[in-house]
């Protein structure tokens, strides 16, 4: 998967449900792999497939009308388990951006560490995105990281989003946290000499 994210114009896949937890994104029984790849086929497994593995016709990912590299979810997206496999599954299924009006903390970190951009918008704007997709499943969204905005292309409606500057730099350039932490080795060793307690 690409480590760089800068700008994207794409249609989106809407899942207008609140509190989408990471057990829905990738159920625990699919966490047995020891690599980061291949989780995409089980993304939203139990919403997407019947117990006999036939696709559930009413789930958005099984409707060919919907496609794109942007996943749009309801409030409190990614709550629950800390499994980074949820972010890997989303990336593996081809998404580069997740839009919601509220993200759970750990998921947000995991997404950024997987080079997926979590875009937090107001509840009003989230509603407008869902409505735009309802009106036209091919409705395009534009996401610009450098200028920190998301736009509904057809209507021109636009909203700015927040991202911390460090993570923005990482995504724009494909840097990861370990590169930065490894560069702090001297400071870490110095810190260890100042600790008074045996732990």
């Amino acid at each position: 998967m690409s480590k760089i994210f800068q700008h994207l114009v794409s249609s989106a896949v809407p899942v207008p449900i609140e509190n989408i937890d990471t057990d829905q994104i990738i159920p625990a029984r699919f966490l047995k792999a020891t690599t980061r790849e291949g989780f995409g086929e089980n993304l939203f497994r139990d919403w997407r497939y019947n117990p006999d593995n036939t696709p559930k016709a009413d789930f958005v990912m099984n409707n060919p009308v919907y496609s794109g590299q942007i996943l749009v979810g309801g409030k409190n997206f990614g709550c629950g388990s800390s499994r980074e496999h949820a972010a890997w599954a989303i990336a593996d299924a081809g998404f580069k951006v997740v839009v919601s009006s509220f993200f759970a903390d750990i998921f947000k970190n995991n997404a950024l560490n997987t080079f997926i951009l979590p875009v937090q918008v107001s509840e009003g704007f989230l509603d407008r995105i869902f409505k735009a997709i309802e009106a036209d499943p091919k409705a395009q969204l534009e996401v610009d990281l450098e200028n920190q905005f998301i736009k509904i292309v057809s209507t021109g409606e636009k909203e700015d989003f927040d991202i911390n500057q460090y993570k923005k730099t990482c995504l724009l350039n494909g840097y990861d946290d370990i590169d930065y932490l490894l560069s702090l080795r001297k400071e870490i060793e110095q810190y260890e000499t100042t600790r008074t307690y045996n732990f």
Partner: peptide
């Protein structure tokens, strides 16, 4: 607190983690 696997790797590699203060 709980962390993701990329952060597990950070801690294994450096005994540190990058976090914004809640």
């Amino acid at each position: 607190f709980g962390i993701g696997t990329s952060e597990v790797e950070q801690v294994l590699a450096t005994q540190c983690i990058l976090q914004y203060k809640p």
